[in-house]
Amino acid sequence: MKIRLGALLAVSLGVAVLIPLLLGGQDVFALLATVKPATLALLLGMVVIGWNLNAGRLRLLSAGYGLGLGQGRALAYIVATEFAVCVTPAGGGGAVVYPWLLSRHGLAKSRGLALYAADHVMDMLFFLAALCVVLLHSLAATQFTYLGWQLGVTAMLLVVPLLLLWLLIENFRKVFHAAGRSLLRLGVGAGWRWRLARHSLEFFRSLHLIRGYSKMRLAAIFLLCSGHWLLRYSVLYFAILAVGESITWDYAFIVQMLAQAAGQLTILPGGSGGIEVSSSLLLIPHIGVAAATSAILLWRFVTFHWYLIAGAPVFALLAGKTLWRLLAGREVLQLGGESEVRAPPRRTVQKEPL
Protein backbone atom coordinates (compact mmCIF):
# COMPACT_ATOMS: atom_id res chain seq x y z
CA MET A 1 0.00 0.00 0.00
CA LYS A 2 1.48 3.32 -1.06
CA ILE A 3 0.57 6.62 0.52
CA ARG A 4 2.11 9.94 -0.43
CA LEU A 5 3.90 11.54 2.49
CA GLY A 6 2.46 14.97 1.68
CA ALA A 7 -1.09 13.60 1.78
CA LEU A 8 -0.37 11.82 5.05
CA LEU A 9 0.90 15.08 6.56
CA ALA A 10 -2.20 16.96 5.39
CA VAL A 11 -4.44 14.38 7.06
CA SER A 12 -2.34 14.63 10.22
CA LEU A 13 -2.69 18.42 10.36
CA GLY A 14 -6.44 18.14 9.91
CA VAL A 15 -6.85 15.46 12.57
CA ALA A 16 -4.74 17.43 15.07
CA VAL A 17 -7.18 20.34 14.83
CA LEU A 18 -10.51 18.58 14.22
CA ILE A 19 -10.46 16.19 17.20
CA PRO A 20 -10.18 18.95 19.87
CA LEU A 21 -12.70 21.12 17.99
CA LEU A 22 -15.24 18.29 17.73
CA LEU A 23 -14.85 17.51 21.42
CA GLY A 24 -14.83 21.08 22.70
CA GLY A 25 -17.24 22.78 20.33
CA GLN A 26 -17.54 26.55 20.03
CA ASP A 27 -16.33 27.12 23.60
CA VAL A 28 -12.83 26.34 22.35
CA PHE A 29 -12.72 29.52 20.26
CA ALA A 30 -13.86 31.65 23.18
CA LEU A 31 -11.16 30.28 25.47
CA LEU A 32 -8.40 30.54 22.86
CA ALA A 33 -9.37 34.18 22.30
CA THR A 34 -8.46 34.88 25.94
CA VAL A 35 -4.86 33.70 25.46
CA LYS A 36 -2.59 36.73 25.54
CA PRO A 37 -0.08 37.22 22.71
CA ALA A 38 2.66 37.49 25.35
CA THR A 39 1.74 34.00 26.60
CA LEU A 40 1.97 32.54 23.11
CA ALA A 41 5.31 34.29 22.61
CA LEU A 42 6.53 32.78 25.89
CA LEU A 43 5.57 29.26 24.81
CA LEU A 44 7.22 29.65 21.41
CA GLY A 45 10.29 31.12 23.08
CA MET A 46 10.54 28.09 25.36
CA VAL A 47 10.69 25.86 22.27
CA VAL A 48 13.38 28.03 20.64
CA ILE A 49 15.49 27.96 23.81
CA GLY A 50 15.06 24.18 23.91
CA TRP A 51 16.31 23.93 20.33
CA ASN A 52 19.40 25.91 21.29
CA LEU A 53 20.04 23.59 24.23
CA ASN A 54 19.75 20.62 21.87
CA ALA A 55 22.16 22.31 19.49
CA GLY A 56 24.67 22.55 22.32
CA ARG A 57 24.12 18.87 23.02
CA LEU A 58 24.79 18.02 19.36
CA ARG A 59 28.01 20.03 19.46
CA LEU A 60 29.25 18.15 22.52
CA LEU A 61 28.29 14.76 21.10
CA SER A 62 29.81 15.36 17.67
CA ALA A 63 32.98 17.00 19.06
CA GLY A 64 34.00 13.54 20.27
CA TYR A 65 34.38 12.64 16.57
CA GLY A 66 36.33 15.79 15.78
CA LEU A 67 33.44 17.72 14.24
CA GLY A 68 33.66 21.42 15.03
CA LEU A 69 30.05 22.51 14.57
CA GLY A 70 29.22 26.12 15.34
CA GLN A 71 26.09 26.93 17.33
CA GLY A 72 24.25 28.31 14.29
CA ARG A 73 24.89 25.27 12.12
CA ALA A 74 24.09 22.87 14.96
CA LEU A 75 20.83 24.75 15.59
CA ALA A 76 19.92 24.48 11.90
CA TYR A 77 20.57 20.73 12.00
CA ILE A 78 18.39 20.34 15.09
CA VAL A 79 15.49 22.32 13.59
CA ALA A 80 15.71 20.36 10.32
CA THR A 81 15.75 17.07 12.23
CA GLU A 82 12.74 18.11 14.33
CA PHE A 83 10.91 18.96 11.11
CA ALA A 84 11.70 15.50 9.73
CA VAL A 85 10.46 13.90 12.96
CA CYS A 86 7.15 15.78 12.67
CA VAL A 87 6.49 14.94 9.00
CA THR A 88 7.08 11.18 9.24
CA PRO A 89 5.08 8.46 11.04
CA ALA A 90 6.51 7.58 14.47
CA GLY A 91 9.19 10.25 13.92
CA GLY A 92 11.25 7.88 11.77
CA GLY A 93 12.56 10.72 9.61
CA GLY A 94 14.84 11.91 12.39
CA ALA A 95 17.01 8.81 12.06
CA VAL A 96 17.41 9.59 8.34
CA VAL A 97 18.04 13.35 8.46
CA TYR A 98 20.32 13.53 11.52
CA PRO A 99 23.11 11.25 10.18
CA TRP A 100 22.60 12.55 6.62
CA LEU A 101 23.35 16.11 7.72
CA LEU A 102 26.36 15.06 9.77
CA SER A 103 27.67 13.08 6.79
CA ARG A 104 28.16 16.41 5.02
CA HIS A 105 31.06 16.91 7.44
CA GLY A 106 32.60 13.59 6.50
CA LEU A 107 31.08 11.54 9.34
CA ALA A 108 29.99 8.04 8.30
CA LYS A 109 26.20 7.63 8.42
CA SER A 110 26.52 4.64 10.76
CA ARG A 111 28.39 6.86 13.22
CA GLY A 112 25.82 9.61 12.81
CA LEU A 113 23.10 7.08 13.54
CA ALA A 114 25.02 6.01 16.66
CA LEU A 115 25.07 9.63 17.81
CA TYR A 116 21.32 9.82 17.21
CA ALA A 117 20.80 6.63 19.23
CA ALA A 118 22.99 7.93 22.06
CA ASP A 119 20.99 11.16 22.00
CA HIS A 120 17.77 9.17 22.48
CA VAL A 121 19.27 7.04 25.23
CA MET A 122 20.14 10.24 27.08
CA ASP A 123 16.51 11.36 26.62
CA MET A 124 15.24 8.11 28.11
CA LEU A 125 17.60 8.40 31.08
CA PHE A 126 16.27 11.90 31.74
CA PHE A 127 12.67 10.72 31.62
CA LEU A 128 13.46 7.84 33.94
CA ALA A 129 15.10 10.21 36.43
CA ALA A 130 12.24 12.70 36.11
CA LEU A 131 9.72 9.90 36.63
CA CYS A 132 11.43 8.93 39.89
CA VAL A 133 11.25 12.54 41.07
CA VAL A 134 7.56 12.75 40.11
CA LEU A 135 6.88 9.50 41.96
CA LEU A 136 8.59 10.71 45.14
CA HIS A 137 6.81 14.06 44.95
CA SER A 138 3.44 12.37 44.37
CA LEU A 139 3.92 10.11 47.38
CA ALA A 140 4.90 13.06 49.56
CA ALA A 141 1.95 15.12 48.34
CA THR A 142 -0.50 12.19 48.61
CA GLN A 143 -1.26 12.43 44.87
CA PHE A 144 -0.46 8.79 44.19
CA THR A 145 -4.15 7.87 44.21
CA TYR A 146 -4.72 9.45 40.79
CA LEU A 147 -1.20 9.01 39.42
CA GLY A 148 -0.76 5.34 40.25
CA TRP A 149 -1.50 3.53 36.98
CA GLN A 150 -0.19 6.43 34.88
CA LEU A 151 3.18 6.25 36.63
CA GLY A 152 3.27 2.47 36.30
CA VAL A 153 2.58 2.49 32.55
CA THR A 154 5.05 5.31 31.95
CA ALA A 155 7.77 3.53 33.92
CA MET A 156 7.24 0.37 31.86
CA LEU A 157 7.52 2.34 28.61
CA LEU A 158 10.92 3.62 29.74
CA VAL A 159 12.44 0.69 31.59
CA VAL A 160 11.67 -2.01 29.01
CA PRO A 161 13.42 -0.28 26.04
CA LEU A 162 16.42 0.67 28.19
CA LEU A 163 16.71 -2.91 29.47
CA LEU A 164 16.47 -4.32 25.93
CA LEU A 165 19.12 -1.89 24.69
CA TRP A 166 21.46 -2.80 27.55
CA LEU A 167 20.99 -6.51 26.84
CA LEU A 168 21.62 -5.90 23.13
CA ILE A 169 24.88 -4.05 23.81
CA GLU A 170 26.09 -6.56 26.38
CA ASN A 171 25.25 -9.55 24.13
CA PHE A 172 26.11 -7.93 20.82
CA ARG A 173 28.23 -10.82 19.50
CA LYS A 174 25.49 -13.39 20.10
CA VAL A 175 22.82 -11.16 18.58
CA PHE A 176 25.09 -10.32 15.65
CA HIS A 177 25.75 -13.97 14.76
CA ALA A 178 22.11 -14.95 15.31
CA ALA A 179 20.97 -12.15 12.99
CA GLY A 180 23.47 -13.27 10.36
CA ARG A 181 22.17 -16.85 10.46
CA SER A 182 18.58 -15.59 10.23
CA LEU A 183 19.36 -13.45 7.18
CA LEU A 184 21.06 -16.44 5.55
CA ARG A 185 17.98 -18.63 6.10
CA LEU A 186 15.79 -15.88 4.62
CA GLY A 187 17.87 -15.96 1.46
CA VAL A 188 19.37 -12.48 1.78
CA GLY A 189 22.29 -12.10 -0.64
CA ALA A 190 25.90 -12.09 0.53
CA GLY A 191 26.37 -8.48 -0.59
CA TRP A 192 23.46 -7.23 1.53
CA ARG A 193 24.60 -9.31 4.52
CA TRP A 194 28.10 -7.88 4.24
CA ARG A 195 26.85 -4.28 4.10
CA LEU A 196 24.51 -4.80 7.03
CA ALA A 197 27.28 -6.44 9.06
CA ARG A 198 29.72 -3.64 8.29
CA HIS A 199 27.25 -0.90 9.24
CA SER A 200 26.17 -2.76 12.39
CA LEU A 201 29.76 -3.14 13.56
CA GLU A 202 30.49 0.52 12.89
CA PHE A 203 27.32 1.49 14.74
CA PHE A 204 28.20 -0.44 17.89
CA ARG A 205 31.82 0.65 17.81
CA SER A 206 30.56 4.22 17.74
CA LEU A 207 28.32 3.57 20.73
CA HIS A 208 31.30 2.23 22.65
CA LEU A 209 33.27 5.34 21.71
CA ILE A 210 30.49 7.51 23.14
CA ARG A 211 30.55 5.44 26.33
CA GLY A 212 34.20 6.46 26.63
CA TYR A 213 33.42 10.19 26.76
CA SER A 214 34.63 11.95 29.90
CA LYS A 215 32.25 12.23 32.83
CA MET A 216 32.28 16.02 32.53
CA ARG A 217 31.22 15.84 28.87
CA LEU A 218 28.46 13.31 29.60
CA ALA A 219 27.25 15.40 32.55
CA ALA A 220 27.10 18.51 30.36
CA ILE A 221 25.19 16.61 27.67
CA PHE A 222 22.71 15.32 30.26
CA LEU A 223 22.29 18.83 31.70
CA LEU A 224 21.48 20.26 28.27
CA CYS A 225 19.13 17.33 27.63
CA SER A 226 17.34 17.98 30.93
CA GLY A 227 16.96 21.68 30.22
CA HIS A 228 15.44 21.00 26.81
CA TRP A 229 12.88 18.49 28.06
CA LEU A 230 11.94 20.50 31.14
CA LEU A 231 11.08 23.40 28.84
CA ARG A 232 9.30 21.21 26.29
CA TYR A 233 7.25 19.38 28.93
CA SER A 234 6.26 22.60 30.65
CA VAL A 235 4.39 23.83 27.56
CA LEU A 236 1.16 21.94 28.36
CA TYR A 237 1.24 23.13 31.97
CA PHE A 238 1.44 26.79 30.89
CA ALA A 239 -1.11 26.22 28.11
CA ILE A 240 -3.62 25.04 30.72
CA LEU A 241 -2.89 28.09 32.86
CA ALA A 242 -3.39 30.28 29.77
CA VAL A 243 -7.00 29.07 29.33
CA GLY A 244 -7.87 29.72 32.97
CA GLU A 245 -7.42 26.29 34.56
CA SER A 246 -4.64 24.61 36.50
CA ILE A 247 -3.25 21.17 37.25
CA THR A 248 -0.04 20.09 38.90
CA TRP A 249 3.13 20.10 36.79
CA ASP A 250 3.57 16.42 37.70
CA TYR A 251 0.29 15.45 36.10
CA ALA A 252 0.94 17.56 32.99
CA PHE A 253 4.28 15.78 32.65
CA ILE A 254 2.68 12.32 32.87
CA VAL A 255 -0.10 13.28 30.44
CA GLN A 256 2.44 14.31 27.82
CA MET A 257 4.50 11.15 28.22
CA LEU A 258 1.48 8.89 27.83
CA ALA A 259 0.10 10.97 24.95
CA GLN A 260 3.40 10.82 23.07
CA ALA A 261 3.50 7.05 23.59
CA ALA A 262 -0.04 6.77 22.19
CA GLY A 263 0.98 8.93 19.24
CA GLN A 264 3.70 6.43 18.32
CA LEU A 265 0.98 3.84 17.65
CA THR A 266 -0.63 5.87 14.87
CA ILE A 267 0.62 5.98 11.29
CA LEU A 268 0.06 9.73 11.06
CA PRO A 269 2.98 12.18 11.25
CA GLY A 270 3.34 13.95 14.57
CA GLY A 271 1.34 11.24 16.31
CA SER A 272 -1.90 13.02 15.38
CA GLY A 273 -5.03 11.31 16.57
CA GLY A 274 -3.41 9.27 19.30
CA ILE A 275 -1.99 12.31 21.08
CA GLU A 276 -5.20 14.34 20.94
CA VAL A 277 -7.49 11.50 22.04
CA SER A 278 -5.28 10.22 24.88
CA SER A 279 -4.49 13.67 26.29
CA SER A 280 -8.19 14.58 26.15
CA LEU A 281 -9.14 11.45 28.08
CA LEU A 282 -6.56 12.25 30.76
CA LEU A 283 -7.30 15.99 31.08
CA ILE A 284 -11.08 16.29 30.70
CA PRO A 285 -11.91 14.66 34.09
CA HIS A 286 -9.75 17.27 35.84
CA ILE A 287 -10.34 20.57 34.00
CA GLY A 288 -13.42 20.03 31.83
CA VAL A 289 -13.97 19.55 28.11
CA ALA A 290 -13.60 23.12 26.86
CA ALA A 291 -10.46 23.95 28.83
CA ALA A 292 -8.82 20.60 28.05
CA THR A 293 -9.40 20.78 24.29
CA SER A 294 -8.39 24.45 24.15
CA ALA A 295 -5.15 23.73 26.01
CA ILE A 296 -4.46 20.75 23.74
CA LEU A 297 -4.88 22.89 20.63
CA LEU A 298 -2.49 25.51 22.03
CA TRP A 299 0.01 22.86 23.16
CA ARG A 300 -0.06 21.07 19.81
CA PHE A 301 0.36 24.31 17.88
CA VAL A 302 3.52 25.09 19.83
CA THR A 303 4.98 21.56 19.78
CA PHE A 304 3.82 20.36 16.36
CA HIS A 305 2.61 23.07 13.98
CA TRP A 306 5.34 25.50 15.05
CA TYR A 307 7.96 22.80 14.42
CA LEU A 308 6.65 22.52 10.84
CA ILE A 309 6.39 26.28 10.28
CA ALA A 310 9.87 27.05 11.58
CA GLY A 311 11.49 23.85 10.33
CA ALA A 312 10.25 23.82 6.71
CA PRO A 313 12.44 26.69 5.42
CA VAL A 314 15.49 25.40 7.32
CA PHE A 315 14.96 21.89 5.97
CA ALA A 316 14.51 23.24 2.43
CA LEU A 317 17.66 25.36 2.70
CA LEU A 318 19.82 22.51 3.99
CA ALA A 319 18.60 19.69 1.78
CA GLY A 320 15.56 20.58 -0.30
CA LYS A 321 14.03 18.00 -2.63
CA THR A 322 16.89 15.52 -2.28
CA LEU A 323 16.34 14.76 1.37
CA TRP A 324 12.55 15.05 1.07
CA ARG A 325 12.63 12.30 -1.55
CA LEU A 326 14.86 10.26 0.72
CA LEU A 327 12.31 10.63 3.52
CA ALA A 328 9.34 9.83 1.32
CA GLY A 329 10.95 7.01 -0.70
CA ARG A 330 10.96 8.91 -4.03
CA GLU A 331 8.02 11.00 -2.86
CA VAL A 332 6.09 7.91 -1.74
CA LEU A 333 5.91 6.39 1.72
CA GLN A 334 5.53 2.66 1.20
CA LEU A 335 3.93 0.83 4.10
CA GLY A 336 5.24 -2.69 4.38
CA GLY A 337 8.28 -1.98 2.21
CA GLU A 338 11.07 0.48 1.78
CA SER A 339 12.40 2.27 -1.26
CA GLU A 340 16.08 2.99 -1.39
CA VAL A 341 17.17 6.43 -2.56
CA ARG A 342 20.80 7.31 -2.76
CA ALA A 343 21.95 10.50 -1.09
CA PRO A 344 24.10 12.85 -3.16
CA PRO A 345 27.87 12.42 -3.01
CA ARG A 346 29.34 13.41 0.30
CA ARG A 347 30.74 16.89 0.40
CA THR A 348 33.56 18.07 2.57
CA VAL A 349 32.54 21.12 4.55
CA GLN A 350 35.08 23.28 6.26
CA LYS A 351 34.87 22.76 9.99
CA GLU A 352 33.78 25.63 12.15
CA PRO A 353 35.44 26.45 15.45
CA LEU A 354 33.69 24.99 18.50
Rank of each mutant, 00 (worst) to 15 (best):
K2M: 06
K2C: 08
I3Q: 04
L13P: 01
L13Q: 03
P20H: 09
P20G: 10
L23G: 06
L23Y: 12
Q26K: 15
A33T: 06
T34F: 02
T34E: 15
K36I: 01
G45C: 10
V47P: 01
Y65I: 00
G70N: 09
G72S: 13
A80T: 09
T81G: 08
T81L: 00
T81E: 08
G92R: 11
G93S: 02
A95C: 03
L102N: 04
G106K: 04
S110L: 04
L115V: 10
A118R: 06
D119V: 00
L125T: 10
L135T: 15
H137Y: 14
S138E: 09
L164M: 08
H177G: 00
V188E: 02
W192A: 15
W192L: 14
I210G: 01
L218P: 11
L218A: 07
A219T: 10
F222S: 08
L223S: 14
L231I: 02
Y237R: 01
F238G: 05
S246C: 06
M257L: 15
Q264Y: 14
L265Q: 00
L268W: 05
G273V: 09
I275C: 01
S278V: 15
S279H: 07
G288W: 08
A291K: 14
G337D: 15
R347I: 13
R347W: 10
Q350M: 12
